[in-house]
Amino acid sequence: MSAVRTVAGDLPAERLGVCDAHDHLFFGSPRLPGQELRSAAAARAELQAFAAQGGGAVVQWTPYGLGRRAADLPALSRETGVHIVAATGLHQAVHYDDRTLAGLRGGLAEVFVAELTDGIGTSGVRAGLIKVAGGFHALDAHARWTLAAAAEAHRATGAPIAVHLELGTGAPDVLDLLCGELAVPPSRVILGHLNRSPDPVLHRQAAESGCFLAFDGPSRAHHATDWRMPDALRALADAGHGDRLLLGGDTTTASARSVDGGPGMPYLLRRVRPRLAAELGEELVRRILTDNPGRAFAVEWPDPVAR
């Protein structure tokens, strides 16, 4: 059975509901000292605020070693009624110390597969996607290593691969490696942060490959990109790629949470959704928030669990 692997078990795609396709409930990186997402109470409040706007599901892209707190996710899902999808994977090298990376050499794909099939650590919570990252307009050795491991884990499980594009760049290199050399079906690849580089030619080429395109923000550093998002989505939809589009909030710091005065998860539905509906039409926005995430994250898992 094709299903989305949530922290509470495998879920038919049509039951996912309105989905924030890229966000973070817990996250911590040495690149963002003092801004870690660690509070379970704040995560609960953020999910409740999202649910109050009609939200039904959140896909957490926090990968290995960055404070996922997988054991806390099932209770948060039960208490708020919001489905949560957890990630395995590995971010850019700058987010880790040398000892952590050295411990993964020689067995990265095996870690990904174990977290997808057996569970993350001792939590028993199974990941539903693999999150990796490219670089700024290029791929370094670390990115190539993690992308290769992601491809191997995908072949073993069918799990989708979500890719952080640095400032929205580097999609051609990622697709050449993942879908070309490593033969991952484009329909199993999700490119993140396309809104951060509003290049219509790059967007169209990526969409024509057959991958999913995630527009996730708002931007904190490049505000000029935000107002271009409706035009970018319209151009892709007009070109026949409306079924490839995803939306997310990508809350990565404590100050960005709505409960701490930032836009947070509810902003996606409170402000982004009505703006896009006014410019693109209610039906297209509905499909982007409900139908497309189900297709992007649903998998014929090798060991499905009936719920």
Rank of each mutant, 00 (worst) to 15 (best):
A109L: 02
E181F: 05
L194W: 07
E208Y: 14
D173T: 01
F215L: 13
P218H: 03
G121K: 12
L165T: 01
S197D: 13
A156V: 03
A162V: 09
V132I: 13
G170T: 02
E115T: 07
R126M: 01
A109D: 08
S197R: 15
C211D: 03
I120Y: 00
E152C: 06
A149F: 07
A156S: 08
R155K: 13
L147Y: 08
L191C: 04
S197L: 10
A162D: 02
A153H: 08
R144Q: 14
L236M: 13
G124W: 06
S123A: 09
P198H: 14
D226R: 04
F215E: 00
F136A: 05
A159W: 07
C211I: 01
L202M: 14
V184L: 08
D199I: 08
P172I: 05
R220S: 12
L129Y: 00
F212D: 03
F212V: 06
L167Y: 02
H193E: 03
V174N: 03
L236K: 00
G192Y: 05
V189G: 06
H142A: 09
V111Y: 13
G192Q: 09
L233N: 00
T225R: 09
H137Q: 08
A206E: 08
L139R: 05
P186M: 09
S123P: 12
R228S: 10
V184N: 14
D173W: 08
T146H: 06
F215S: 04
A138H: 14
S197Y: 06
T225A: 02
H164Q: 14
S209H: 11
Q205D: 10
E110L: 04
A133T: 15
E152S: 12
F136R: 06
S197I: 05
R155T: 04
V189L: 01
L116G: 07
L194T: 13
E115P: 06
E152D: 09
G121Q: 15
F136C: 09
